[in-house]
Amino acid sequence: MTIPRFWREIKQRYKGIGVECGNCQRVYFPPREVCPHCRRESIGKMKERELTGKGKVITYTEIHEPMSDFKMMTPYIMAIVEMDEDVRMTGQLVDIEYEDVEPGLEVDVTIRRLGEESPSGIIYYGYKFVPIR
């Protein structure tokens, strides 16, 4: 990932800023320019909306063949989470063992290291999920 590309997405990665359609109030993450339901009706009405960060696990899996940034945490859990705003996000689920995860598990967003460019390059931070205890 290039530095400018990462930098452009900081608001989404650190703060979970999505958008809400001013026409139908549906929330989208990552942000969309146009609401796929309202289409041209939504033009100019999409406004920023910060997600609460809380949600429930819909489904999950354990990854055994990681990308290089995740080798230190293998095996690790990826989950699809339905957020309180009725929008789904995919992210790593940390601070829990695989056998303790189940659909419906309540989770919260946390900011962790996602990886790094290289040992001398920039460090990428972004959202992951942790169980609410």
Partner: peptide, 16 residues
Amino acid sequence: PSPDEDVISISIQAAK
């Protein structure tokens, strides 16, 4: 700290 934690992630959690 786990491999994805450092002073920045710890500070962010406490700050939020």
